[in-house]
Design a protein around this nucleic acid. Structure first.
Length: 772
DNA sequence: CTATCACCACTTTTT
DNA sequence: GTGGTGATAG
């Protein structure tokens, strides 16, 4: 224990401790084998973590290279690095600050050869494994046994997160059960295919690193020796594989004591059980690491007391937790605003109107966020936000990298970087269309198998397989192009910069005929696809700017590991839309929590899962605690699920927020004599659709006030001429007078004072209006 | 081999 | 409403 020092014996400069409360200081200064920082929402844990790292560097207790810090997203990692750099300058360089996944990729790329992989392995996301699983299921006709891509993928993922691979599984499986046996067969085949393709899926990145360390101690040893201080953020959301990885890294190496481990977390914010996160990792930390010290951070520096009161009251309903109460030295702040829409569109209109109100009062768009439980809820929100000319951006959802044309382009790059990846080669085989269909593809696969070569190699032997001259030429053409691109990416000579990824991609896209095919197409969507390809080319340019020595494989790694929250651009003047899960770790001045309904939050699917409702409550809690000043809770009485409209009931969680904290602009009709107590168990809506809960001044609104429901029709008013003073009629808002016109062309915005619906901003091009 | 159309199952959350 | 799938025709 010689170099593990107790707090007082290290002279840490006062600058590092400035502005910290006593608990936070303790968390920065404590020195010992294991430290658990229980950090409530908004308690300044990032600040504590960065100063802890900075203090280790400042006092020379550690070199940068001896520090490994694990964050939940790459964005959080970048921010942490920036903040440490701000505190100690370039002493910060050389630290490993990254996500679990990025750290494992880094290790695996270095050590892959040790266990039969090549350093250029591909990383498969769920979208990449899907076609593979589909093929496997079809091949075994396992769908009739009730197997689907989704449930097989989920089960495999779950097992891998428990560090159970196919072989381990075969030992514990009941082979008498045909379903189990079938699953084992498929699991084996999936694993074999990945291995043959020199590929890891997301779960493999962690699990295989653990396997590597366990099976090859001499590989693990340098890492155990190197990392003297390991810090893990969001520890409540680690799964077993991640837990095991940390255990491996903190094992003593010969003649050296175990690394010091700091974990930060909050079991009230554990929301990833579905992904294998095990809340016990944090709860049992003190048993796991003897001599562990615990520091509790409860003072909140983010939110108003009103918001914290709501959060505390809600989370108190989870019974098996350690009591924790967030408090602030700040004031109570504004009341929470509640709203009940007639429909999802109506709710969205409320959100848009309130955002405009906030914006007029001086809140910047980027300080505002809208959260929801499911991605499907974005549709109504988007429609209304566009129409109301509110600038917004969606984090996550249908991601850029999941679009078909981007997947195609990436598959070209992967085919070059990892020729063993048959899936990537198959994907590009006939895109653009080369007249190569499934028959030809199968024939190539068989040829490869018969001759013990890769699928990629089989392309080079197209002439020997009896294809027609046209098909053979198409295959050879593709093969030659890939070879040419491969030559470009050969390791550069000493002192030379590598060929930019941009050049490689441009070559592939142009010579393959991919862009030509899009250009020649009559499908109007192909124009957008072309733009997406151009955007990807711009991404490669940007990558080269940031990483002058970046290789193709680095680009592929970076793009494979982008998370939803990584996309957040702080400088953009737009409202952020995201799921509650993506919102974790972020904060905004004003937050809208939408769709607070039964079957949505808590989600219907969570009802049967053990611990499901409690986790949903934590999700609600996470959402509430993201808000600094203003919090809005909204719901809708009816919602369109898919084509169908169904009636929804207010979430049970709404009744857990003390009524006096909420001011309802439109209540769920639970008011009137009897108060709000009916919400909890009621399945249907109370009789009246108006009135206010919580004994506030009831603004009686006649039923006809539900007029701001909006239809989903798309229209184009592009050529509509409007001037100040014109009278217009809006499908939903009725008649009004134009007060002002701003913007040009497709972005022309009219400010209209409606006779009964209030003042609205409308995007002229799409708003359902006519000039009178 | 490709294009077209009818039909279906589907939506929890994600590194 | 959508996106993927399978049958059919060209």
């Amino acid at each position: 224990m010689t170099q593990l020092l107790q707090p007082s014996s290290v002279p840490v400069s006062s600058a590092l401790l400035e502005g910290l409360n006593p608990r936070q200081r303790e968390a920065v200064l404590y020195r010992g084998p294991a430290l658990l920082i229980v950090a409530g929402a908004g308690s300044g844990k990032t600040s504590v973590l960065t100063r802890r790292i900075a203090s280790l560097l400042e006092t020379r207790e550690a070199w940068p290279s001896q520090i490994l810090a694990i964050t939940f997203t790459n964005k959080a990692a970048g921010e942490m690095r920036e903040r440490v750099r701000h505190l100690v300058g370039h002493a910060a360089d050389g630290m490993w600050i990254s996500t679990f996944h990025s750290a494992c990729v880094r290790i695996l790329r270095r050590e892959a050869e040790v266990f039969g992989y090549a350093s250029g392995f591909t990383i498969y996301d769920s979208g990449d494994s899907r076609p593979l699983l589909k093929r496997i299921i079809k091949q075994h006709e396992a769908d009739v046994m009730g197997f689907s891509v989704a449930n097989v993928a989920a089960k495999i993922s779950k097992l891998k997160n428990e560090l159970v691979d196919a072989e381990t599984f075969s030992r514990q499986v009941n082979l008498a059960d045909p379903k189990e046996a079938m699953f084992l067969t498929m699991f084996r085949e999936y694993s074999r295919t990945l291995q043959a393709a020199n590929a890891f899926d997301f779960d493999d990145l962690i699990a295989q690193t653990v396997y590597l360390f366990r099976a090859f101690p001499h590989v693990a040893e340098p890492y155990r020796r190197r990392f003297r201080h390991i810090l893990v953020d969001e520890y409540q959301d680690t799964n077993h594989a991640q837990y095991a990885l940390i255990r491996e890294l903190t094992k003593p190496a010969p003649a050296i004591e175990p690394a010091s481990l700091t974990v930060v977390g909050d079991s009230d914010q554990s929301i990833y059980a579905f992904r294998g996160a095990d809340i016990r990792n944090i709860i049992e930390f003190e048993q796991d690491y003897r001599d562990a010290t615990v520091v509790l951070l409860e003072q909140n520096y983010r939110s108003t007391q009103t918001i914290l009161d709501a959060a505390n009251a809600v989370i108190a309903n989870n019974f098996d937790r350690k009591p924790k109460n967030l408090f602030t030295a700040g004031g109570p702040g504004a009341k929470i605003v509640g709203f009940t829409g007639y429909s999802g569109h109506d709710e969205a209109q409320f959100v848009a109107d309130e955002i405009e109100q906030l914006h007029r009062e001086g809140t910047e768009y980027r300080e505002i966020a809208v959260f929801y439980r499911t991605n499907a809820q974005t549709r109504a929100l988007e429609e209304i936000l566009i129409r109301s000319a509110v600038p917004y951006r969606i984090l996550g959802g249908t991601k850029f990298y999941e679009r078909a044309e981007i997947k195609d382009a990436m598959a070209y790059l992967i085919a070059v970087a990892n020729p063993a990846d048959a899936l990537a080669v198959r994907r590009i085989l006939n895109s653009p269309k080369r007249g190569i269909g499934s028959v030809t593809e199968t024939q190539l696969a068989n040829f490869a198998e018969r001759n013990g070569m890769t699928f990629r190699a089989a392309l080079r032997h197209a002439g020997e397989q009896g294809f027609g001259p046209k098909i053979a030429k198409a295959i050879t053409g593709l093969s030659d192009l890939l070879d040419e691109a491969t030559a470009l990416t050969a390791p550069p000579e000493e002192g030379m910069a590598p060929v930019p990824v941009f050049d490689v991609l441009a070559l592939l896209m142009n010579r393959s005929g991919y862009v030509d095919a899009l250009r020649a197409s009559k499908d109007p969507q192909d124009e957008a696809r072309l733009e997406n390809i151009e955007e990807l080319l711009a991404v490669t340019k940007e990558f080269q700017r940031n990483n002058p020595d970046g290789l193709l494989i680095d680009f592929l790694t970076e793009t494979a590991l982008v998370a939803a929250a990584d996309e957040l651009d702080d400088t953009s003047g737009t409202v952020s839309l995201m799921t509650l899960h993506t919102a974790k770790g972020l904060e905004f001045k004003a937050v809208f929590l939408t769709g607070i309904e039964e079957d949505l939050l808590p989600h219907r699917m969570s009802a049967n899962e053990p611990g499901g409702p409690a986790e949903e409550r934590r999700l609600f809690y996470v959402g509430i605690t993201r808000a600094r000043e203003r919090l809005y809770l909204s719901l809708a009485m009816t919602r369109n699920s898919y084509g169908e409209t169904s009636v929804s009931a207010p979430s049970r969680f709404l009744a857990e927020v003390p009524a006096e904290l909420i001011e309802w602009k439109q209540s769920p009709g639970m008011a009137g004599p009897g108060g709000g107590s009916r919400v909890a168990g009621s399945l249907a809506w109370g009789g009246s659709s108006s009135g206010a809960a919580g004994g506030g001044a009831a603004q009686q609104k006649p039923k006809t006030e539900w007029t701001n429901r909006v239809t989903g029709k798309v229209r184009d008013n592009g050529d509509l001429e409007l001037a100040v003073g014109d009278r217009v009629k809006h499908d939903d808002f009725g008649e009004g007078r134009v007060q002002g016109i701003t913007g040009t062309a497709a972005k022309r915005i009219a400010e209209v004072q409606f006779d009964s619906a209030g003042r609205k901003r409308l995007l002229v091009k799409v708003a359902p209006i006519v000039k009178l």
